[in-house]
C-alpha cells in the first residue's frame, strides 16, 4: 500500500528530469547563440579597427602628390585581412557628383577610379591599391561583410594643381 505509484528510483524522478533536460537545452542554445553573436561582433570590430589603421596610413600625408606616392602608401600597409583602397573624383560642382557602388569597382573600375597617363609606356595608371582580379572578384560575393570607409583627400594631378578626391577603403575577411 505504501508503494502506491512507486515505479522505481529512476521512475519516480522521471517527471523532474523533463524540466532539467529542457533547462539544459534552453541554456546551451542561448549560450551558443550569444557566443556566435559575440564572435560576429568582434569580427566586425576588428575589421573596423583595421580599416581605421589603413586609412590613417593612406592619409598620413595631407596631399597625395603622385601615382607612385599613392602606390607606395598602399605597399606600406601590412594587414592579414582582405582589403582594397581607391580614389574617386570629388567634383566641386555637386551636380557632377556620382555615387559609387561596389559593382562600379569590380565591373568597371577603369571608368570610375581616378587615372593618369603614364607617358613612358603610353599606358594608364589607376589609383587603386589592389588591381588584381582575384581581389576584385571577392567584392562580388554578397555574403561577405565588407566594411566601407570614405574620406576626402587632396590629389595633385599631372597638371600640377590640387583637386579634391574621395578615398574609399574596403575591408573584408
Amino acid at each position: 500500500m505504501n508503494q502506491k505509484g512507486f515505479i522505481g528510483s529512476i521512475g519516480d524522478d522521471l517527471p523532474s528530469l523533463i524540466p532539467i533536460f529542457l533547462g539544459l537545452v534552453v541554456f546551451f542554445s542561448v549560450f551558443l547563440g550569444v557566443f556566435n553573436d559575440y564572435n560576429a561582433k568582434n569580427r566586425v570590430y576588428t575589421l573596423n579597427q583595421e580599416a581605421v589603421e589603413i586609412s590613417m596610413q593612406l592619409k598620413s600625408d595631407p596631399v597625395i602628390v603622385s601615382y607612385d606616392h599613392f602606390i607606395e602608401k598602399c605597399n606600406e600597409i601590412n594587414t592579414p585581412k582582405n582589403w582594397n583602397a581607391f580614389l574617386v573624383d570629388l567634383p566641386q560642382n555637386t551636380e557632377d557628383f556620382k555615387s559609387i557602388t561596389l559593382e562600379d569597382i569590380y565591373d568597371d573600375y577603369q571608368n570610375n577610379v581616378i587615372k593618369i597617363e603614364n607617358p613612358d609606356f603610353g599606358t594608364e595608371n589607376y589609383f587603386i591599391c589592389n588591381e588584381d582580379e582575384e581581389n576584385l572578384d571577392q567584392l562580388k560575393d554578397t555574403s561577405k561583410n565588407i566594411i566601407n570607409f570614405l574620406y576626402p583627400v587632396v590629389l595633385q594631378n599631372q597638371d600640377g594643381y590640387s583637386t579634391t578626391a574621395r578615398l574609399y577603403i574596403l575591408i573584408w575577411e
Partner: peptide, 8 residues
C-alpha cells in the same frame, strides 16, 4: 569646396 566635401 566645403559643399562638395560634405556632399559625400
Amino acid at each position: 569646396t566645403i559643399k562638395s566635401l560634405m556632399y559625400a
